[in-house]
Design a protein around this nucleic acid. Structure first.
Lengths: 337, 337
DNA sequence: GCCGGTGATGTTAGCGATAACACCAGGTCG
DNA sequence: CGACCTGGTGTTATCGCTAACATCACCGGC
């Protein structure tokens, strides 16, 4: 009962299977030149010993780790949090572990420090979730040579980037409202320095332009339900407002509440559309029509882009967008006549 | 301009500093027997080369990684998410990286799989955030010998555990309501299989018992604002209800909305207290009196417990609770007369 | 002034994997 | 029928670090 006996190593497996450790290595790495019978013997030995390869040893000799570093804000916002989950899952499937470096604020110093920590870990690549401009600016400091993909970052920067097609989602949401008969659509926007918010403003505006609808002023808010509520209180007072597209579902929730307090019925008096499709959106009163970003797809694209850089050093098509889908529920109706 | 030149290794630093690589190692590990002057020379060389120790090599020879695995639910709930952030921060300060293994549902198989993935990574220790009974049950499968700490887990299980003192927080919240004059306090509870929820029920009940107040039936809900709203609609109809303690802030938000819709003023007609102190709580209408758990403290205790196990193999005092604090805002007042 | 102790440093031997090459049997080909 | 390939396997060197031991100068005590 030797408690201290170390974990089995490759040589232990080799001895048990009656081969050399190198053959074990070949089996593990799926090299072609191993006889089927040998392969089976080795696999049996691996199973019997509950052998697991030592990643440190492998990393030492190959010079590569199976670790991906993610830099994300210390945030509980739905979008970033979902993205992170999805990415962890995708990376896990590809045999990579994910080391998360949270950052309190997305400023230059914090991001640089997080990136440094990851480089200390010798991660194979780094993903930065950089949804606003201060974060994007910080990326200028990241030394070249480290495979890096930005998610939700600055579309105008030349780094490899994956993002939800915000403009497209906003366009479809707005178009949908116009298609059911609204003359124009008002917009409650997220913080101006967030690319997501900016993209949604763009999409909204171009949908209005495309149909020559009048473009009302943007109602600026942050992402919170509270600010949506304040925006909604204002909009509820204006009889000409029949349709509102909100930059996220929480804002929409606030608008919904404000409308209901002022006796406006959604959707019959005012239609409301959100963005994100948070889990609760289907349980809002009324269930919210909203735009659903495909976080799993974003995660997969991100991982793909990163793995390309890791193996080739280069990458084709370094910018990828993922199309969101409009989820129709009960918060949209034709305008009152 | 040799792009391919490998990263500097310890011998490179040694050569530049005119010492042996072992001396460099000693400097890096803060061994006492190095002359100050030598230490400075080595540090200068490290800086000049931007040398960073190869963790894989170190892990290989020491048999230990600087990685901690966390198993957490794929969740955006405030409590777990905050805890995770706090833990990542604490671990980072201690020089550990954190590898997160998300799990979709907290069942036996998923948790076992996540633990296996972490063991493949040869993590130094594992933290499981196991806030409900199915998760806690799954821990029975984790093989002994892996340093493991449970957070928010089953208080009745003998494994090392760190948790917020839910009962104490609930006790204080309830006591506060009674102290300002309420005859009794109603409780809107979280899901029964969550330990947090159960602990809060216990604390509430014992505060009532301590003052011989009548114990009304528990109003069961999940964690969502929607369920809090439904509970609130019921409570608002009952004139004898003057004080409500909610198991989290989202429930409280729902109750607040239901009260306001029925024309009940908070705090003058009904007092409401929450739990969690989510960032928005101060912006609720009215600003919410609530119980703030100290997630940073939980994270530090967890890390401490884990590091003890990692180094000693054993641990003293394997159960730790962290006291929350009552944050008084404007949702509590004496009952109407 | 020799001896043992001590502080500062160097030397050597692995940790557990992969890469590169060596080797050997058996088949192919001129 | 010997040179040559080729699939299957073993041998050896190596990655970058730490542990353990070796070395050496210098100290104080008897």
């Amino acid at each position: 009962m030797e408690k201290t006996s170390r974990d089995p190593a490759m040589t232990d497996v080799a001895r048990l299977a009656g081969v050399s450790h190198q053959t074990v290595s070949r089996v593990l790495n799926n090299h072609p030149n191993v006889r089927e019978q040998t392969r089976l013997r080795v696999k049996a030995a691996i199973k019997e010993l509950d052998y697991r390869p030592n990643r440190a040893a492998r990393a030492l000799v190959t010079g590569k780790t199976q670790l991906i570093g993610v830099v994300a804000q210390n945030s509980t916002l739905y979008g970033p949090a979902s993205l992170l989950s999805a990415f962890e899952e995708a990376a896990g499937e590809a045999g990579f572990a994910v080391s998360v470096g949270r950052v309190k604020v997305l400023d230059r110093d914090s991001i640089a420090a997080a990136v440094e920590r990851h480089r200390d870990q010798r991660v194979a690549g780094i993903v930065v979730i950089a949804p606003n401009s201060s974060a994007a600016d910080a990326l200028a400091d990241v030394p070249a040579g480290v495979p890096l993909v930005t998610v939700d970052g600055d579309p105008d920067r030349p780094t490899p980037l994956v993002t939800v097609d915000q403009a497209m989602g906003a366009f479809e949401a707005t178009k949908h409202l116009i298609d059911v008969g609204h003359e124009t659509v008002w917009h409650v926007s997220g913080p101006a320095d967030w690319f997501d918010a900016a993209g949604r403003v763009d999409g909204w505006r171009s949908a209005l332009d495309a149909t020559s609808a009048e473009v009302p002023p943007v109602v600026a808010a942050d992402w919170s339900a509270a600010s949506g509520y304040r925006a909604g209180q204002m909009l509820a007072r204006m009889p000409e407002v029949t349709a509102v597209f909100c930059s996220n579902d929480h804002l929409a929730l606030g608008v919904l509440r404000a409308m209901s307090e002022r006796g406006k019925n959604v959707p019959h008096d005012v239609s409301v559309v959100g963005f994100d499709d948070v889990p609760e959106a289907a349980y809002f009163i009324p269930p919210l029509t909203t735009v659903r970003p495909d976080f799993a797809a974003v995660a997969h694209e991100t991982l793909g882009l990163l793995l390309e850089q890791i193996s080739d050093g280069e990458t084709t098509r370094p910018r990828r967008t993922v199309a969101p889908t409009l989820v129709k529920r009960n918060s949209v109706a034709p305008p009152p006549r």
